[in-house]
Amino acid sequence: MLVTVVTITRTRPGLLARALDSVREQRLDAPFEHLVVIDDCHDTYLSLREREPLPAGVGWILAGRGPGDVSGPGRSSRLRNMAVRVSRAPWIAFLDDDNTWEPDHLAGLLECAARTGHRAVHSHLKMFNKDGSPYLEQRDPWARDPAQGRAEYARMRARGVVEPGSCVRRDRFDPPGVPDPVVSVDTGEWLLARELLLEVPFTDDFDARDEAELIGEDDKLARSLRERGEPVSCTGRPTLRYHLGGYSNDFSRPFDATFSWRD
């Protein structure tokens, strides 16, 4: 296998089915596998069993929980790290169960990695509301405070990341030394060498400051890569279809009955 695609899922079998289809539709002239990590959810496990025989290259792990395990970025980090250890493919990509990819997503990332020789490459994304409509609000959706969200949108607009009337977000990974840097890459945009993820695993320690600033596992991974000076390249193509409504941007209801930003 050249690439392992990792999807972590819990209580959303309908969305998982959409993600499975998205990975199956990848136009890639190389072998890849899709590893689904089920976070202690029997209903989702049954939904996969009902689809058997699964498409070629799809496998799953049912990860049980201990008494103190809760949903949140710490749990997601541990499951991602487990999937990396299980994989034997040289490249790892992540697709959350509520997102999808354009059919040329993996091919574009692998071409970028081959051209640059970098162990970390990423795409851009298109952002959608939960109902599937393009997200066009001039407000950062990850800010709880509307005024703060508008201010962050203005900053991202000035830096060329977003523009009015478009749902495309040109995420960036500015190296150290760049004034007013943009260090924003969603987990679903990355293609990372497995050896790199073994050297720099996802951090699973989150505190009150992380919760207040909505710092997720993708933010901490990007910071770790930046601190070590890891070279990063971008395809320049918006091939991740990012759907709002997850725990990092839906503040209207609890994401999960067990959810906690801190363990």
Rank of each mutant, 00 (worst) to 15 (best):
A143F: 14
G117S: 06
L225V: 10
E195T: 14
R139A: 15
A151F: 03
L221G: 00
F206C: 02
W91L: 01
I215M: 05
W91F: 07
D205R: 15
L197D: 03
Q148W: 15
L136Y: 07
H105N: 12
E211L: 15
P13I: 06
D29F: 01
E195H: 11
Y242D: 01
A212V: 08
L48M: 12
L54F: 11
H42I: 14
V178E: 04
V3H: 02
M156P: 00
S22F: 01
V168E: 07
A193C: 07
V86L: 13
P55K: 07
A83H: 02
R223M: 11
D207R: 08
H105W: 05
R150L: 13
S224G: 10
G132Q: 10
A83R: 02
D186S: 15
Q138M: 13
G108I: 02
L79P: 06
D180P: 05
G160P: 08
D21M: 09
G68Y: 14
L35W: 11
G149R: 12
M1R: 03
G57L: 05
I8Q: 06
R49M: 05
Y247E: 04
T44L: 02
T11I: 06
V162I: 12
R75C: 05
F259T: 06
N249G: 13
E199H: 07
F206P: 01
V200P: 00
V6G: 02
A107E: 13
G108Q: 11
A17H: 13
A208W: 08
L221R: 00
P73N: 10
L95K: 06
